[in-house]
Design a binder for these strands. Structure first.
Lengths: 255, 255
DNA sequence: CGTATCGTTGATACCTGTCAATCTTGGTGG
DNA sequence: CCACCAAGATTGACAGGTATCAACGATACG
């Protein structure tokens, strides 16, 4: 248990690549993230203070002193947001994908860690300056409000899983959500692919456990159960094919 | 289990008292709720469309068809927000106290129930019209954003409890939070009272269980444990005196 | 004073956590 | 290219915490 905390300390002080040549015009999330609320002209207010960065899987996006200084938009990859108890138990409280926001505006303390779950590319802003842009552009603030309301909805759905679902239901629900998310990003404006949904898990078993309030062993056992019963197929441990989506959905939400 | 769902149906179609003579000037939450972002003049935009209502303990604030039509501010009492699984299991996902907001702006569906946990007094707005006021008053929308961000923070803290804490820790943490909240509202600008903190639980054992992802029996047993060990004293079942606040805090967050 | 509702307590079962061993995978260096 | 190693994942045996089922007690209400 103390290992985990130590590990965290060691991977702190991130030294990510800084990329200067990214332009909003060719940003893949320009029309999906909150910056889509701004027209190309107003968007300069953001691009002027923006810094593009890469983080490798496992790197912390900030350490405790930095936390209040960062606001960012995920461009590619996945970020996990998690909290830790004094004895090392941890709980993932948010998974962020392209177009999602990281960093708590309008508050200094949140005691939340953010770590690259995969290699990620993010678009960073000095927080105080970003808040200034928000104040001058109510349409941007409105977009942030809508995003925050959606985050709150997901957090509450997540609470139902944590509080009231069995391990089997949690895992089926989790895989279903991951599967659907990957289907969405896969065929942008195409009819659903005729093949069975296949996707790569952005999280290790350990992290899935920390997501769902379980242990790694319970996660593993339930994966096996799903595999043996033919609902899913493990292609390489992280890559999953959903052989029977209906069965998976049935297991996620019973009755 | 199906009883619960039926009970819900029966108490639907609320017929609350409508009170017309409330004025913003003497509203107890005028300077704490999001409307404090508006000066007395702008506040008319709200008071013009506002309706004051009472709900008795157990009444639903809306039924499924109504959900998208309501936005409200709690004036007194407590409201519980909860979600239900198809088989009747339920999870409370939010507790709202005076100055808190109820109702999801900018979205039609949320599948969340809201019920008066105690007798409550709330200040209601037709949602579409409230959204109009938000659009015309960015400072109000900013206040709503700040409140939503705080709600998101609490939801995430709550997730840590649900996913990673033992029954004993959950209950100690819950009592601690309730105790602190009541202390805050008790002495507005006074030094902490010399007496031991005492407060009335706004929830039944059943509801506490639905808050913490436990059963009513486990809640009851842990209350007993705290009582026997002298950490709390039950004055009348709903009224609790915290005899040893430090011990309670220790049990809530170990190590 | 009976009755319904809520809360408490007890006995037992089961799910999930814990501890430990084994297997798999990917990376490294000889 | 293969052996070796570390990290991650799986599997098994077992224990423990919480749920379940059931009975009883307390409290409020008519």
């Amino acid at each position: 248990m103390p290992d985990k905390r130590q590990q965290l300390k060691m991977s702190a002080s991130p030294q990510p690549d800084v990329i200067l040549d990214r332009r909003c015009e060719n940003c893949p999330v320009r029309h999906h993230a909150i910056c889509s609320a701004l027209d190309n002209h107003s968007c300069h207010a953001l691009s002027d203070i923006m810094v593009h960065r890469h983080f490798a899987r496992g790197q912390q996006l900030w350490n405790e002193e930095d936390e209040a200084d960062v606001f960012a938009i995920v461009v590619s990859g996945a970020v996990k947001l998690f909290k830790m108890l004094a004895d090392g138990r941890q709980q993932i409280v948010g998974l962020l994908f392209p177009a999602d926001c990281v960093g708590r505006t309008f508050s200094e303390t949140q005691q939340t860690f953010a770590e690259a779950a995969t290699n990620v590319e993010i678009c960073c802003f000095p927080r105080k300056q970003f808040e200034g842009v928000l104040r001058r552009h109510p349409e941007l603030e409105h977009a942030l409000l809508e995003k925050t309301l959606n985050d709150l909805d997901s957090a509450r759905d997540w609470m139902v899983s944590l509080g009231r679902k069995s391990a089997g239901e949690k895992i089926a629900g989790f895989l279903l959500k991951m599967s659907r998310k990957s289907e969405l990003t896969k065929c942008p404006h195409d009819r659903p692919s005729p093949n069975l949904p296949t996707f790569v898990l952005p999280l290790s078993r350990d992290e899935i456990a920390d997501c769902l309030g379980l242990t790694i062993e319970t996660v593993s056992r339930n994966f096996t159960k799903l595999r043996v019963s033919g609902v899913i197929r493990l292609i390489d441990g992280q890559t999953i094919e959903v052989c029977d989506p209906d069965a998976l959905a049935g297991l996620a939400e019973p009755a």
